[in-house]
Design a protein around this nucleic acid. Structure first.
Length: 427
DNA sequence: TCTGGGGTCCTAGGACCC
DNA sequence: TCTGGGGTCCTAGGACCC
């Protein structure tokens, strides 16, 4: 099967979002830090050039930050999510055949579009997003998603390409040349474990992998290996996924602002994180049948411990209070007073659509109780939707805030909070 | 002192069944 | 010593992604 795909990939996305409202930072080194301001999760080209790697712990790079006056931001996911949606809206106008792959990448299926010059088309898309949203992107075009990703990456790396590369028109020898110049680690699906494994087999470039026998690739790397080989040869194996495909799990987790021994603090974290996960679940129109609770000590300290338990809900639910109560019971079972806890996660999974409960299970459900629970949650969501994210919430969320991560240098939520709108002055 | 958060998919192995 | 064969389901763990 062969198609034609474009990958639209935002350059240094989080940094680019910050620059939309801070044009003075253009050309300067900028990093965005993780939620606890602990490590760098996005870097501008200038920051990359200083040798700051992805995930760089701040405490190890403080000198470089200071010496080169690197501008730092706490992650502002509300802003990034909003900018991402703006880009999706632009792309959806170009074609509805779009897969939003991540917050900063989308695939487009171009096979139904009437395009004669893909490079010219890609340049236009790039200009349009820059003009309408303000974020620079790279565009890669090829007959498989894996090649489209490589094309976008190369378009980004080589300035003379202007952020755009079309591989679909290459002949076999030109493609071989391209793959020869592509290191293994750049390939979608080859991570830190597979790369050394392949090198041990004498394969050092994408060209080598593309020439591997599919049977052997599968033996070595599972079904994914066989598909990677085909994709590198321009044979599409991964189809476009629906714009909003049903989620299979919803998790929320945080590293605490400071480690804690207090069960009340863990309890507050459970209440808060469960509220966020369950709210998301309701927005998707789903009920969860299972959940799990995970917490741990600091993995960078000796005696690292993890605590984990799952629970099956008697009735599928999206009720914050019910789920939170179940997780609290798990906490009571697992909690050890002697430990100092560092992080906690909640996870919801095994979803069914909300309306299925009525159809299939009402016999087993107390209808009045179920309606009360649904009504309470609906009212809460409606109030929070209208008056802002945290107008009503469960008291347990307020037991403690000491677990909440620090984000001391977060930029304003320019586009999603009335109080933080940017102000322009005419002088 | 200080090291992120949110996901998906595949596979091996065990339990269980006929 | 010898002690079937095949199927399904579930789960934990591993690998990957951004």
């Amino acid at each position: 099967m062969s198609g034609i795909y474009a990958l639209i990939d935002c350059n240094n996305f989080f940094v680019s979002c910050e620059r939309v409202f801070r044009p003075d930072l253009e050309g300067r080194p900028v990093v965005v830090l993780s939620s606890n301001d602990g490590c760098a999760v996005a870097r501008s080209n200038e920051a990359k050039a200083l040798g700051i790697p992805m995930g760089a712990p701040v405490f190890k790079f403080r000198q470089i930050f200071d010496r080169h006056r690197v501008t730092r931001f706490s992650a502002n996911f509300e802003l990034y999510g909003d900018i991402s949606e703006r880009i999706t809206r632009v792309l959806t106008k170009i074609t509805p055949r779009i897969e939003v792959y991540s917050i900063d990448e989308s695939f487009l299926d171009l096979s139904q579009l009437d395009i004669t010059d893909y490079t010219a088309w890609a340049r236009e898309v790039r200009q349009r997003i820059l003009r309408e949203v303000g974020v620079p992107v790279s565009v890669g075009i090829a007959s498989s998603k894996t090649l489209a990703k490589l094309a976008a990456e190369r378009g980004k790396q080589q300035p003379e390409l202007g952020g755009v590369l079309d591989l679909s028109s290459l002949d076999a020898s030109q493609r071989a040349q391209f793959l020869q110049a592509t290191p293994l680690g750049d390939i979608w699906g080859v991570g830190r474990r597979l790369a050394p494994k392949l090198k041990a087999c004498g394969i050092h470039t994408a060209l080598g992998l593309s020439q591997m026998s599919p049977r052997y690739a599968q033996q070595l790397m599972g079904i994914h290996g066989r598909q990677m080989v085909a994709e590198l040869n321009g044979i599409s194996c991964y189809e476009l996924k629906a714009l909003y495909s049903a989620r299979k799990s919803i998790g929320r987790g945080r590293t605490f602002g400071e480690d804690t021994r207090s069960p009340e603090v863990l309890q507050a974290a459970i209440a808060s994180l469960t509220a966020r996960a369950a709210q998301r679940l309701r927005r998707e129109g789903m009920l969860a049948m299972s959940g799990s609770l995970y917490f741990c000590t600091n993995k960078h300290k000796p005696g690292f411990r993890t605590f984990y338990e799952t629970v099956r809900f008697t009735i599928p639910t999206a009720d914050t209070a019910i789920i939170s109560g179940q997780f609290t019971q798990l906490l009571e079972q697992l909690f050890e007073p002697a430990q100092s806890y560092h992080r906690l996660n909640v996870l919801l999974y095994d979803f069914i659509p909300e309306h299925n409960l009525q159809v299939d299970l009402l016999g087993e459900v107390d209808p009045a109780g179920h309606d009360r629970s649904t009504g309470r949650m609906k009212a809460m969501d409606a109030i929070n939707q209208r008056f802002g994210g945290h107008t009503v919430y469960f008291a347990a969320e307020n037991l403690s805030h000491s677990w909440e991560p620090k984000h001391q240098i977060r930029s304003p939520r320019y586009t999603s909070s009335w109080d933080e709108l940017p102000v322009a002055r005419l002088t």
